[in-house]
Write a protein that binds this DNA or RNA. Sequence first.
DNA 1: GACAATCTGGAAAGCGCTTTCCAGCGAGTA
DNA 2: TACTCGCTGGAAAGCGCTTTCCAGATTGTC
Lengths: 373, 373
Amino acid sequence: MDEQRSRGAGAANGSAAGATGATAAAAAAGAAPARIRPATGAVTLKQVAAEAEVSLATASRVLHRSGGREVRGPLAERVQTAAERLGYVSNPHAQALARARSSTVGLIVHDVTDPYFAAIATGAMHAAHAEGVMVMMAATFRDPELEIDYLSRLRAQGARGVLLAGSGSTDARVSGRLAEAIAAFTREGGRVAAIGARPDTHIDAVVPDNVAGARQARAHLEALGHKRIGIISGPETLLTVSQRLAGLGDGLRIIAADFTREGGYQAAKKLLAAHPGLTALIALNDLMAAGVLAAAKDAGRKVPDDLSVIGFDDLPFAADLSPALTTVRLPLRHMGERAMSLLLADPDEPSPKTIDIPVDLVTRASTAPAARR
Amino acid sequence: MDEQRSRGAGAANGSAAGATGATAAAAAAGAAPARIRPATGAVTLKQVAAEAEVSLATASRVLHRSGGREVRGPLAERVQTAAERLGYVSNPHAQALARARSSTVGLIVHDVTDPYFAAIATGAMHAAHAEGVMVMMAATFRDPELEIDYLSRLRAQGARGVLLAGSGSTDARVSGRLAEAIAAFTREGGRVAAIGARPDTHIDAVVPDNVAGARQARAHLEALGHKRIGIISGPETLLTVSQRLAGLGDGLRIIAADFTREGGYQAAKKLLAAHPGLTALIALNDLMAAGVLAAAKDAGRKVPDDLSVIGFDDLPFAADLSPALTTVRLPLRHMGERAMSLLLADPDEPSPKTIDIPVDLVTRASTAPAARR
DNA sequence: GACAATCTGGAAAGCGCTTTCCAGCGAGTA
DNA sequence: TACTCGCTGGAAAGCGCTTTCCAGATTGTC
């Protein structure tokens, strides 16, 4: 830290001059032109080079293997030692600027609080960390405009890639503009990957088999003898929702609401009141399922004796609900990892590439044979 | 990948040329000195300035209010229009480099999957977004080394500030090195804030009143007639834990484990087996409380009739546990917001500043009068 | 032993932006 | 009317790093 201190002193001088006597002071400074701006205080490559008594170019080549050339022998060692002694940490901005590409990736989610995204983010961060890449995480709070905005900021930043974790929209207007932004980004060498399919965009994707999962859920219920099944759905503009609905098939009562716990609660309450004959409810995600469970309780329906409930995702809390939730498990964390590695893959790899992820029904205590009536 | 490819091509030429017709090729490039490197493709300030027929300086002043000077009148408008027409997005790296400070802040958490951090992160991101600042979120997976590492990377990056969301450690060795890293960062004008107190470091902090919360929890239980109370504690090296323990006071059975659901489950199982006479359990966070509930069920103890349970934090799922959890609520999201605004505050504000956050006990269904025996 | 082929390290030209200093100008003062 | 201000816009010097091109040193070949 010592050099920090001495730097600090220098900076103080500099700014003092700037603040007060301006020209006079500057003139007084005389021969050596006063430092214009306060130093950042960080050790620079230049200092390392000076310390090691080599040129800037050499130092850069040693420390960052840049320029596609290697330096060996005593020179290299001197640089290494100097860098360590000084505690050199390279400035990523300068590097990004000079290279026209940074070592950051963006991770765009809808909502950080949603455990679904949290799980994906964890996986992604793990994978990124393994590659020495930093993750910039941004939350759109479900505003598609923000998604586009972040994308262009990340582009301007020269991010290496961006991972879109939120489900795509089926709204053509929005997805069109997003597709444009994505195209602009990839055209410049950025890579974009998504969790879930993004039709109309040619990007890497990790896609869970929602359709098959939904089919399993229905089959499970029918095997238990359920005939009247209700669906607690999220907004149909979400691709995830429409896929799950597709897998579920026809002949079911569907009610849509927000893709949240509260949405699930309200929808279930309404549906149960309107169709008391339903013996099972499928919520299109675990958050909604939690709400469904609460609504069932309030309505005096015992789960699973009176009413079976199934969710989707298998979020960490699913097993702690009561009764423990039967749900279609998505290996969220794993998906995050795969998606990130797609993003970080060799740029020459053929792309776009799609990784299909199988899903499974996890049977717990919230489903039981249909009550005889 | 386009420029990648052309890059490849260019490089190939270059080396081929180097070997052979070097000069010839360069000469062929002709009058205009060939662009050395591929353009990033993005619109630059220079282009905007040219389009608007003003100088670079003016364009910068208009578009970024930089240099502490304002430009008004037709010039300003011309620049605005040009920028819009061209779709200009400023390059944050160049800006960071020139200003020696970027408009990013770091957010360091232990674990993204933990809803506790997710809630804080949401608040922080909201506040950051309002200021047009981007958040780099990093997870340490509870490795203090990583925390220090990230801090120095953020420093090299010229981050405006860093928010430490994880609880501080009481281990002097680790916290000493961290304190050093923090000091280095602040010395350079960076700002660091924390959620929870960080003794030994002079940084801004938002600190929940854990002691008072713990006191309320105990008082509530005692008012219900509970005499034999057990504590399911996390690792005592976490400051949060030691504060909560302090507030709880003496005369209680304590068992410590991981600060997770699983830790809570195991610890409760053990404690209940060893001391069947306990009528109430206080878990030091909601995650552990979820485990406690599960363990109680497995042990055949009915909550709350047989055993009362209290948690800490009031995570979103607390109300969905069964029975709904009585817990000490921390306004997590709000805390995240406050902490971020501390970080983004005017650098001249006196600092360090500490914001105390009051906490409340939320009474739900997991506590009841002690059973007579 | 003379020359070409190869390798190495250094100088320097940027990357896109900020900010200082300077010159020019109309307005205010004496 | 002569002079000093206060403003405005532009030129240019960096910020810290990468990478190209060049020149000198080293090796190999006939």
